[in-house]
Amino acid sequence: MKNKIAFLTIAISMSSCVMVKEYEKININDPDMTLTKRKSLKFETSFHIYRESAMGANGGKTGGGCGCN
């Protein structure tokens, strides 16, 4: 699995030789194209952290808080 992720990352990185100019980024800059979860889903992420063992790697909080209930 780790090898697959590394391979995928390298493959996509190598294909990224197209330089997109600032004035060409109108679609990239669309508010729904952000590489994070939507802010309105903040509490949904909280319950995932409380109820599931996996956490992190989502650009959010990685610690603190109990969530033991």
Binding site: I5, I12, V20, K25, N27, M55, A57, G59, G63
Partner: peptide, 28 residues
């Protein structure tokens, strides 16, 4: 106590696509 190190890489691939890869190392 929780200690974390987070690394991220984002890349625009074209006028219409982009990706990011990120990893945390979390020690409790």
């Amino acid at each position: 106590n929780t200690y974390s190190v987070s690394l991220s890489l984002s890349q625009i691939l074209s006028k219409n696509s982009q990706f990011s890869i990120f990893s945390d190392i979390i020690m409790q």
